[in-house]
């Protein structure tokens, strides 16, 4: 019997353990992980695309690294992210609602944020609860803030999390890619298109 810890949708605890402390390790180049298990990247592409197609509110959370056109690569990623969002929108049924909600920066937004229009790493659960988001992808969020958010989300919500990480990946996401590029994001959009119609939409 396997005793490997699995990174699964929560709510896990008020303070879920960091997946790394439970033995989850990061993928090598060309790989990804699903629930903490190392797989090849295509396998994870398929799982991520299926999550988008089967969620009631599939959502992309772009962070500062892609919201701001601070270099050419960032601008290209922004274009790819928009394309992925439009693709998800086209491929889901009218009962599903795709969303694109920015994390413009990381400052604690007190006394409140508007959860309809933004997400903040210090209380990402507010945006997820408010919009009833059941699958999301982080992209362009600096590692530390993504880790913080992913853990809070796993702790307090049932949302399925995907990380499109430009570095080495995130243990605390349910699916994590690494070395994200505009091409990789476009490839995920292709997977969504390819699987359109083959995934059961959410009930009611």
């Amino acid at each position: 019997m396997s005793t490997m810890y699995e990174v699964l949708p929560g709510p896990e605890h008020f303070l879920p353990p960091a997946a790394a402390s439970m033995g989850i390790r990061l993928p090598d180049p060309g790989q990804a992980h699903i629930h903490g298990k190392i797989v090849n990247e295509d396998e994870a592409m398929e799982v991520a695309a299926r999550q988008f197609l089967s969620a009631k509110v599939p959502t992309i959370f772009p962070g500062p690294l892609v919201l701001w056109a601070w270099n050419e690569k960032a601008a290209k990623k922004a274009t790819a992210i928009r394309h992925l969002y439009e693709t998800i929108k086209e491929c889901v049924t009218p009962s599903q609602q795709a969303m694109l909600i920015p994390m413009p920066d990381y400052r604690p937004k007190y006394p409140k944020i508007n959860p309809e229009i933004e997400i903040n790493p210090n209380h990402p659960n507010l945006t997820i609860w408010h919009n009833k988001i059941d699958a999301c992808m982080f992209v362009g969020v600096h590692c530390h803030q993504a880790n913080l958010s992913l853990k809070i989300i796993r702790g307090g919500t049932y949302c399925y999390t995907i990380a499109m990480c430009a570095q080495a990946g995130h243990e605390d996401a349910m699916v994590s890619f690494r070395d994200a590029t505009a091409d990789k994001i476009m490839k995920l959009a292709d997977w969504v298109k390819k699987l359109k119609g083959s995934v059961e939409p959410p009930k009611d």
């Binding site: 056109a69 922004a78 992210i81 413009p104 229009i117």
Partner: peptide, 17 residues
């Protein structure tokens, strides 16, 4: 130049930004 929002993301940014 340095504080340009990516054009595809402009409309989703909160108005303060």
């Amino acid at each position: 130049e340095r504080i340009k929002i990516a054009p595809e993301m402009f409309e989703i940014m909160p108005s303060e930004y």
